[in-house]
């Protein structure tokens, strides 16, 4: 039980990363491979600014501005020239983008592991431990709450606002959307900036747990099976997928892992994703893909 709850909560951390992928996929049916690098880039910038003695809120705000600039540059120099190209081409371009962001972050801030203290302890909350006999880390719980807030916010944005309607139109058919006057540029900018903010939040949560370091990028790869399970274009899917991966990973590690010498966390999510793919290629909440000649 405890393992399960712990897994579920750490799964929300994956969900936060996955959310950034979903946002961009939903608006441009582009799979943004650079999301992991964005997480790293954002939080490294944030910690770097904090080290200059800039207060938390200002640093947070500045990093958001930086991420908006990243979104702006991406739209102008990567997406616009590649408009109407195939998905695979865009995917490869975002892999390139990821390398650029990683390199930039390293060049500016160096490679050493940094600590990030959010003032939230990564240790069990005494009250819950005493009353419910469950050991739940405060950080996990915060991550869960933050994820919940973001999901509700983004879902409302997509469903009920004019921008959200525009986003969905663009995702459906970018050409048709722009021909009826939806400003493609602004929509893309907005989405990439939003993904940047999500990346920052995800990075802060991960950074507080594991230190702000290069390995964050590998963690972001784990968001991929989350997406497969949840479906690429579904915000709730990202959350459910994250929970499933988090829980299954932890349960397998604790109950089956010892027989194989442990560390099956490294590949179990991917294998799980493969089995999901065989059964439901579009994910739990994804839209069915119909392909025609």
């Amino acid at each position: 039980m405890e393992v399960l709850v712990g897994g579920l909560l750490s799964g929300t951390m994956y969900s936060l990363v996955a959310l950034g992928f979903v946002l961009i996929y939903k608006a441009s049916s582009t799979f943004n491979f650079a999301q992991g690098a964005m997480v790293f880039f954002a939080v490294l910038g944030f910690v770097g600014l904090m080290e200059f003695g800039i207060p938390f809120s200002v640093a947070f705000f500045l990093t958001i501005i930086v991420m908006i600039f990243v979104g702006l540059a991406t739209e102008r120099f990567v997406l616009r020239p590649l408009m109407n190209q195939s998905e695979d081409t865009l995917l490869m371009a975002t892999i390139g983008l990821g390398f650029v962001l990683e390199g930039l972050a390293q060049a500016v801030w160096g490679v050493e592991v940094r600590r990030l203290d959010l003032g939230i302890k990564d240790s069990p909350i005494p009250w819950i431990a005493d009353n419910l006999k469950l050991f739940i880390s405060a950080l996990d719980l915060t991550a869960g709450l933050v994820a919940a807030v973001m999901i509700v916010g983004l879902t409302l944005l997509f469903k009920y606002t004019k921008i959200g309607l525009g986003l969905r139109a663009v995702a459906d058919d970018a050409g048709a959307a722009s021909s009826i006057g939806i400003p493609l540029k602004h929509i893309m900018l907005l989405v990439w900036s939003a993904a940047g903010v999500v990346a920052l939040v995800a990075g802060m949560m991960w950074g507080a747990r594991a230190g702000v370091q290069f390995a964050l990028i590998d963690l972001a790869l784990k968001a991929l099976p989350v997406l497969i399970i949840g479906g690429f274009s579904s915000i709730p899917g990202a959350i459910i997928g994250g929970l499933i991966i988090g829980a299954v990973e932890k349960v397998l590690e604790v109950y089956i892992g010892p027989f194989f010498g442990g560390a099956i966390e490294g590949w179990a999510p991917y294998v799980l994703a493969i089995f999901f793919l065989l059964y439901r290629p579009e994910g739990l909440f994804g839209e069915k893909i119909i392909r025609r000649v």
């Binding site: 371009a93 892999i95 390139g96 983008l97 390398f99 650029v100 990683e102 390199g103 390293q106 060049a107």
Partner: peptide
Amino acid sequence: IEQIVFGVLMI
């Protein structure tokens, strides 16, 4: 720099 160049070239 190596990473940035590879990434830029890719794009």
